[in-house]
Design a protein around this nucleic acid. Structure first.
Length: 576
RNA sequence: GCGCCCGUAGCUCAGUUGGAUAGAGCGUCAGGUUGCGGACCUGAAGGUCGCACGUUCGAGUCGUGCCGGGCGCGCCA
């Protein structure tokens, strides 16, 4: 509908420019639905943009546009010049009503496009190292990344969801050592690390009660580590006393924790297509290759016993270590190698979803792969800020170090996957997210935004159930006739339904799924009061034409709500 | 100190490539309903868009400088 009108405007502006002997291009004008309905269905600012160029008053140009436009299209019911020179357009009322058969026809496809057909895009997200359960930050990222992937799929892109984890470096060794320490504690051969006031590792004694503290100072203190150690003790007795932390302990811990992470993701309904590990890059010889290629471009040098990336050559503020003096790579080198592999695997577009704490390092990776002839402008970063948890009006303190943080699992247990997802995706990703646990646990659909949208959807099924009880058939695309929809609130709902494709397109293009959440809330905000106020407009009445139209509206509302919720990974229940 | 993000109603937050009178939910207040359910309706108040300059027909939106909050600035990942 808007495309058509844009075309009309384009043609009219061409005429006007020609009439003025101006052969320049038609300016990029805006044609949008104004907030204020008194300003028409669409408003165009073209006259304002042309005022200077044509040296005429904007209102005068607007009058010209309005006059020509009226003749150009039958879909236009009324054109008006307003304000400083806006051209406001009213479409014939039937235009909105004519939308309904199309929406019912397309159903789950409504809003989808094929814009991305044949384009391969990788979305890398979560990518948490298997050293512990997923935190709320990971949870936000999981929901965000998956929603972005879903939106891209809805636009026809060929999407690969990928999870990358570091299993080659120090962190995993520390993990193994932590489990080993707990194992030795279980055997009575080691003392646990001090707690409470003496918790600072720098002040730990060598031994307590004659037992050495073998727990690493930067070890993982979570209870799950002790659980793993107890399991190993139960299975192997004391047979592992001489086992190094970096061996069996590490492997068992990694496998077990990764299993838990995947279980958490599965309960959120998230499945990855590919898991990539740092270890694969080692065994494939990719690190040496990258290092050699960077060296060939004089981007690597030795200093202080380490190997450095000459990042200052890219205009970045400092150089970075690629290989430590110990001979071990930092995370940066595998990261560069990994990103080069992304392009070698044929992705046209690469999206990295990461927490704000990783943002600083992104340019180093991008510039490095760019120097290796990769199309660096096709890598983009979607950054998200952290999550805080509020309960009873107070922030719940989270401390990774003391392993006293709320996990995704714990929250899922309390509020369920749908509420979790909706809350996590409701905010712009670059804003802090305050997860209000009281609100999330509130079962009241009037208050809890996730339920408000779901309930609006369930209500459309409630109406259908009642219709069937009364022997009234639901209309379909062929039998629906929306012309009886004349009330302002009904036209408003139709307009909102018409917006959906634009909302999806924008949300997808900007990688901002929160627009879909707000769209759902807006639809619910129109639909719930409409249904509630059955005294003024009952859907089911004696007037069969009106009933048909309102049932059609019901199905239209259902369609956009179901589609929006599905794109967010939130279920669209038939009853609540 | 430097870099990035944020600052909009009492609270949590939206605000479409710069557009007309800045919005939603919750909370507050005032009326109306109390019929069965966890979930009733209507309306109102509430704003110097952190501050100040600048860009222009027009700034919450763009630029510069301050103020306040968060994150980052390792041979950690």
């Amino acid at each position: 509908m808007r495309e058509q009108l844009t075309g009309h405007f384009d043609a009219v502006l061409r005429e006007i420019l020609d009439a003025n002997g101006d052969e320049g291009a038609v300016p990029e004008f805006a044609l949008e639905a104004p907030r204020n309905p008194d300003h028409g269905d669409f408003a165009c600012n073209a006259a304002l943009l042309l005022a200077k160029r044509l040296r005429r008053a904007p209102r005068q140009i607007a009058e010209d546009i309005a006059e020509r436009l009226g003749k150009a299209s039958e879909a236009v019911e009324r054109v008006e010049v307003a304000g400083p020179g806006f051209v406001n357009v009213w479409l014939a009322g039937s235009r909105w009503q004519a939308l309904l058969p199309r929406v019912l026809e397309e159903g789950a496809r409504y809003g989808r496009t094929r814009a991305g057909e044949g384009i391969r895009v990788q979305v890398e997200f979560v990518s948490a190292n298997p050293t512990g359960p997923l935190t709320l930050g990971h949870g936000r990222q999981a929901v965000l990344g998956d929603a972005i992937a879903r939106m891209l799929e809805a636009q026809g892109y060929e999407v690969t969801r990928e999870y990358y984890f570091n299993d080659g470096g120090r962190q995993m060794r520390v993990l193994g050592e932590s489990v080993r320490a707990r194992y030795l504690e279980a055997l009575g051969l080691a003392a646990p690390p001090p707690k409470g006031a003496d918790a600072d590792p720098e002040t730990w004694p060598e031994a307590v009660d004659g037992l050495p503290i073998v727990f690493p100072k930067d070890g993982y203190q979570g209870e799950y580590i002790a659980d793993l150690a107890r399991d190993l003790h139960a299975e192997h007795g004391d047979a592992l006393v001489d086992e190094p932390g970096d061996g069996l302990f590490r492997e068992v811990a990694q496998t077990s924790i990764f299993g838990e992470i995947r279980k958490t993701l599965a309960s959120l309904g998230i499945e990855f297509d590919v898991f990539s590990s740092e270890q694969d890059l080692y065994t494939g010889g990719h690190l040496e290759a990258v290092l050699g290629d960077l060296r060939a471009r004089d981007l690597v040098y030795e200093g202080e016993g380490a190997t450095w990336l000459r990042a200052s050559a890219f205009g970045l503020d400092r150089d970075r270590v690629l290989v430590k003096s110990s001979g071990e790579p930092t995370y940066l080198l595998p990261d560069i190698a990994y990103h080069r592999e992304k392009f070698r695997r044929g992705f046209d577009r690469v999206i990295d979803v990461q927490g704000a704490d990783h943002k600083e390092q992104f340019p180093f990776v991008v510039e490095a792969v760019g120097a290796l002839e990769c199309p660096k402008d096709r890598v983009e970063l979607v950054m998200h800020q952290f999550v805080t948890l509020t309960r009873g009006g107070e922030q719940v303190k989270q401390s990774t170090r003391r392993a006293s943080y709320v996990t995704v699992d714990e929250l899922l247990e309390r509020v369920g996957g749908d509420v979790f997802r909706f809350f996590m995706v409701q905010r712009r990703s670059e804003s802090h997210l305050d997860f209000d646990l009281d609100l999330a646990e509130d079962a009241d659909w009037k208050k809890n935004p996730a339920y408000r949208v779901q309930y609006a959807h369930a209500r459309t099924h409630g109406i259908e159930r009642k219709a069937l009880e009364q022997g009234v058939a639901m209309p379909d695309a062929a039998s629906v006739d929306a012309s009886a929809l004349e009330l302002p609130e009904e036209i408003e709902i139709l307009k909102k339904i018409a917006e959906f494709p634009d909302v999806l397109e924008r949300a997808c293009a900007t990688r901002e799924p929160h627009h879909l959440a707000y769209f759902g809330l807006e639809v619910a905000g129109l639909w719930n009061p409409y249904v509630q106020d059955g005294s003024r407009h009952r859907v089911l009445s004696d007037d069969s034409a009106l009933t048909n139209a309102r049932l059609g509206l019901t199905l239209g509302v259902r369609t956009v709500l179901a589609n929006a919720l599905t794109l967010l990974g939130v279920s669209a229940p038939e009853r609540m």
